[in-house]
Simulated scan of single mutants.
Amino acid sequence: MKENAALCDQVAQTQENLVVVKEERLFLLRKLLQQQGEVDASSVLLRSQINNNSSSVSSDGITPKKSLKKRNSTDVSDGKSKPKRYSKATRKVVQLIPLDVHGRPIFPISLGDLTVYSLGEVVSDRLTYHSEDVIYPVGYCSTRVFASLRDARIKSLYTCKILDGGPKPRFEIASDNDLDQPLVGSSPDECHSRLLTAISSALCSLPSKGADFFGISHPTIQNLIQSSPGTRKLAMYKPQRFEVSKNQMAEMGVTPIVEEETDPSLGFAALHRHFALASSYRIKEEPNEQDFLALQELLA
C-alpha cells in the first residue's frame, strides 16, 4: 500500500511537471509569433490549445493554477519590455498558404495572377537592398500574367527576378516570348515603368508599382520575407504588422479581392477595362460575364 501511494504521488507530480512544460512551450510560441507580427492568429491558437490542455488535465483531477499564474505574471513583464520598432501602419492581412510538416511554405505559392517560386536571401550588409517598407532579397523569383509586349490583347507570362548587382540590386522582368531580352532596372518601379511603356505609350500615365508587380509588397509574401534570417540586422527596414484573415480562417474557400483585379498596371482584365474606357479599345478575346458586368457598372 505504501509503495502504491508513493507511485501515485510520483505520477501526480509528473503530470504537474508536464502541465508546466506545456504552458512554457505555448508561451514561447506566442513570443515567436509576436516577433513575426501574427499576434491575432497566435492568440486564437494559444487560447484553443490552453483550453484543450486544461480540459485534459482537469479530467485527471489536476488543476494547473500555479502554472497559469506564473505564465500570466511573465506576460505582464514581457509587455513592459516589448520592442517598439514596428511600423505604425495598419496591420496587413495575409492569406493562408499550404505548409509542410515543418511549417515551411510549399513552393510555388499561387496568389491570383502572381506565383512566387523563391523568396531568395536577405542581404543585411548593404543598405540599398532594402528600404523602410520593402526588402529586396537576392534570388527572389516570381511570375505574373499580364499583357503581351507583342500584342496587348493577349496574355503573356512575365518572370520577375532580383539579382545581386554589387552596390545595388538588379531587377529584371522578362516575357516568356523574350526571355533573353529582359527589362532591367535599378529599382522595381523602373522595371515596371519600362514594361508599361513597352506595351503601349498610352500606359505612361499609370503610376509605377514595381514592388506590387514583383510581389515583394504582397502582404503574404512580405510576411514570409520578413520572417527570413537576417531581417533583424537591416538598418532602415521597419517591420510590418500582419494578421491572418478572419474570413479565411472561417471559410477556407473564400479568396479576398486583390488589387490586381482593379489596377490596370497589375491585372490583365483590369488593363483591358482601362483600354475600353479610355480609347474604345476592342479586346481580341470575348470578355467573360464578370468582366461584362464590371464594365456595365463603370459605364452606368
Rank of each mutant, 00 (worst) to 15 (best):
N17Y: 08
V134W: 00
V21N: 04
A152V: 14
K66I: 04
V184S: 03
S59A: 12
L149P: 05
L99N: 12
E243Q: 07
P137D: 07
A270R: 02
K246C: 06
A250G: 09
K22F: 15
I225Q: 03
T90M: 07
V94W: 00
G103D: 07
E297V: 12
E38K: 01
K82I: 15
P137Y: 01
T220L: 02
K80R: 14
F146M: 14
D75W: 06
K82L: 14
Q222V: 03
S156H: 04
A269I: 13
S208N: 07
D100L: 04
I221Q: 01
C160T: 05
D151I: 07
K238V: 04
Y281Q: 06
T115G: 01
A6P: 05
Y117Q: 09
C8G: 07
A41D: 12
D178L: 10
E251Y: 15
Q49T: 12
E285F: 11
Q248F: 02
D178P: 04
P188H: 10
Q222H: 15
S110H: 06
L7P: 09
R30N: 15
S55C: 05
A211V: 02
Y129A: 01
T63V: 15
T231R: 10
Y237D: 04
R126F: 00
K161D: 02
V244G: 07
D100A: 10
P105S: 08
G103N: 11
P108W: 08
C141N: 08
Q95H: 08
V94L: 05
R91V: 11
T14Y: 05
G215T: 02
Q13K: 08
T14C: 10
C8L: 11
I162V: 12
P167I: 13
G267Y: 05
A294F: 03
L32G: 10
F146L: 12
D40Q: 07
A41G: 12
E243S: 10
R241Q: 11
A294V: 04
Q226L: 01
A6M: 06
D40M: 04
P239Q: 02
G210A: 06
G165I: 05
V138L: 02
N52F: 03
S54L: 14
Y281H: 11
S81G: 11
E261S: 11
I97K: 02
A300T: 11
N177H: 06
I257R: 08
L111I: 14
E261P: 00
F213I: 07
K233I: 00
K82A: 15
Y140K: 01
Y129K: 01
S87G: 09
S124C: 11
M249F: 09
A41F: 13
E121Q: 13
E260Q: 06
N288W: 10
